[in-house]
Design a protein around this nucleic acid. Structure first.
Length: 421
RNA sequence: GUGGGCGUAGCUCAGUUGGUUAGAGUACCAGGUUGUGGCCCUGGAUGUCGCGGGUUCAAAUCCCGUCGCUCACCCCA
């Protein structure tokens, strides 16, 4: 084999397409139900947008971006997430004059240079939702509900949100100091990774999976008990809304997200069947981001959901997507006149929106029938010497195993009626 | 970036302590029906045994290197 797909990328073959269609269809239905409009920012942006938007010290920016110089010597980066690009799109196109909240969604590929594993790829596809300009926790509920309803309508069972609040620039730094102080008293028992986290990204200390660190995490100060009044109110109101709607959720004190811009609400939806990953969906509130990128203060909340992970999880749970319609008629033929008639009839049937296949070349009727069977069509129209001579078509129903002769000029009508049934 | 497992036919895999022309299932093609699919029967085609080097009379098998895939860690959808 001379050429292979690049590490961490994958081919989506016909067998998997029904999943994609099914999911996309549900996304369109639900976003329009909630009043979200689609936007498509470009796949690449100026590198500095992501550095500023995602955060200089995040893993994504430090080691996972596909960054290159184009021929004009501009530093370009394939998007490692949607939010920064959507914020840029919002500002550049003056969308801040629209009635708030501005509610947007996107679907498209995301690129991160990571080691691939089950449920993780270097190119994956995200369904992304953003709501801008609204502080009311009801918008948090709305955004979370989009994710919820999508998975519910796809057929997922036993859904639960993982929920936490990461505070705001007011209360979070104070909490981080408290957390650091606590950890410094236990520095002799924590793992090397955690020692590094203590300096660089203290919130991630809580997410360590090493057994030896668990006792320390268990007794660590909890952020929800260190929130400022505003953040605590927001968090409590959101919980009351979730209770009202009967949406199950688990307060997860260890849930911190890897991007710098999150404030207040952070959440994930977990699923089975995606290897050691568990999130099909992750998101939260980012009230300072638009300002950070040069706009006016504009609160926002959103999430990203990985479609490949949704599909893996659907397969795991045995959820079948709606099938894609395949051709139901095939035209077989023999002899010069039959062949001509077959070409003509194929295209006429397609003009009538009848999904039709033409048998190509000069082959035995047996081999044409075999192909028809393999392609799972229901009807085969046979146009051979006998049929042409008698000005008829033989129509064989492969499911029933029955065959009838129909006058040539009535065959299209005959099939059209059969197919309707 | 770190660690484990694995690279044999289009696909899924077998290949015993190194030993003749490397196998099975499935898919594919043909015949069994000189105009009729599926099921069944018979036959056929298909491989640089990932790549490079080494050990040996002899390597798919052992050793080294390399590339790739995969799972996990970090992190994330």
């Amino acid at each position: 084999m001379n050429y292979k797909s690049v590490t961490g990328t994958r081919d989506v073959l016909p067998d998997e397409q029904p999943y994609w269609r099914f999911i996309e269809k549900k996304i369109y239905e639900i976003t329009s139900l909630y009043g979200y409009q689609r936007v498509d920012p470009p796949v690449f942006e100026q590198t500095r947008l992501f550095i500023r938007g995602v955060g200089e010290t995040t893993d994504i920016v430090e080691k996972e971006m596909y960054t290159f110089l184009d021929k004009g010597k501009n530093s370009i980066t394939l998007r490692p997430e949607f939010t920064a690009g959507v914020m840029r799109l919002y500002l550049q196109n003056g969308m801040h004059v629209l009635p708030k909240p501005v509610k947007l969604f996107s679907i498209g590929p995301i690129f991160r240079y990571e080691r691939p594993q089950a449920g993780r790829f270097r190119q994956h596809t995200q369904f992304n939702v953003e709501a801008l300009g609204e502080l009311d926790p009801a918008i948090d509920l709305e955004v979370m509900s989009i994710a919820w309803q999508l998975y519910a309508e796809l057929g997922f069972k036993g859904l639960t949100f993982q929920l936490n609040s990461t505070g705001c620039p007011e209360c979070r730094p104070k909490y981080i100091e408290t957390l650091k102080a606590y950890y410094k008293n236990h520095i002799d028992v924590i793992c090397d990774d955690c020692k590094r986290r203590l300096d660089r990204n203290a919130l991630r200390l809580l997410d360590c999976k090493k057994d030896s660190c668990q006792p320390v995490i268990a007794k660590a100060p909890v952020i929800s008990e260190h929130l400022c009044d505003e953040c605590r109110d927001h968090f409590q109101t959101l919980q009351s809304y979730l209770n009202l709607m009967g949406r199950p959720y688990t307060i997860n004190h260890k849930l911190v997200r890897g991007l710098d811009y999150y404030t207040k609400t952070v959440f994930e939806v977990w699923a089975q069947g995606i290897g050691s990953q568990n999130a099909v969906c992750g998101g939260g509130r980012y009230d300072g981001l638009v300002e950070q990128l040069g706009g006016q203060f504009t609160p926002g909340i959103g999430f990203g959901s990985g479609i490949e992970r949704i599909i893996l999880s659907m397969k795991e749970q045995g959820i079948e997507p709606d099938p894609i319609l395949s051709p139901i008629v095939m035209i077989a033929h023999s002899g010069e006149a039959g062949r001509k008639k077959a070409v003509e009839m194929t295209f006429k049937l397609r003009e009538q929106k009848m999904p039709t296949l033409l048998s190509f070349g000069e082959r035995s009727l047996k081999s044409q029938l075999r192909e028809a069977n393999r392609r799972q069509v229901k009807f085969v129209v046979i146009l051979g010497e006998r049929e042409i001579g008698e000005n008829i078509a033989a129509i064989k129903d492969l499911h029933e195993g029955k065959q009838v002769d129909i006058p040539l000029d009535e065959t299209i009508k005959f099939i059209a009626e059969k197919v309707k049934l």
